[in-house]
Every structure is written in C-alpha cells, then in structure tokens.
Amino acid sequence: MILLPCPYCGLRNASEFRYVGELSERPDPNATGIEDWRAFLYMRDNPAGWTTETWFHRAGCRRHFVVERHTVTNEVRDSRLPAAQLRDREDERATGGNVADDRGGATY
C-alpha cells in the first residue's frame, strides 16, 4: 500500500483517495478548435517516470490536491494544493482534476 501526503491531513493510505488523473492544461473552450479540445480530452503523456497528477481525498477532507509520483517505483514527492485552492480558499469548488494552470493564474 502506498502512502499519499494530503496537504491537509498528512500521510494516509492510498485507498482513502481517488486518483483523478494527469495534471493537464485545459485549453479555453471558447478559443479552442475541436481537434485541440479532443486532444485535451483523450491524449495522455503516460510517462514511465515522474508525473504530476491530481488526487481527491475521498475518505478524508474531500479536497483535491496535486502530487508528483514516480510511476515505476510509486515514490511520491512534493504534494501541494492546486493553485486555484491556494488563491481562493474561501470560494472553493471541486476542480475535477482540470486545474488549468497549477501555478496560479487560470481559472477552472
């Protein structure tokens, strides 16, 4: 069983979480062509190595957060809140994993 560091609750068993998916940049739906939109929907980097991804603490604080994980060893490092949560903790919504820019700036 791997342990995941929730930024709110600390280390917990992975079974408490739901894996949401690779952190990917969501293009602006109003300005994006259908091809790019479908590429965003379906294409994945799926690397054998370090990857940045979103998880949801289903059986805990029920918040989304971002973590770096090595997909070959399942080692985990650098867990943090999604940029949107950091920016505005008051007005929090479920990100569905589609946090457009994890380092701040974009909206979800």
Partner: peptide
Amino acid sequence: PFTSYSMRGTLE
C-alpha cells in the same frame, strides 16, 4: 485504482 508501470501485487 491508479496508473503505474510497477508490477507489484497488493494485499488490498
């Protein structure tokens, strides 16, 4: 429940 290239079994 999550992606991986690791082929280890789990007790869960």
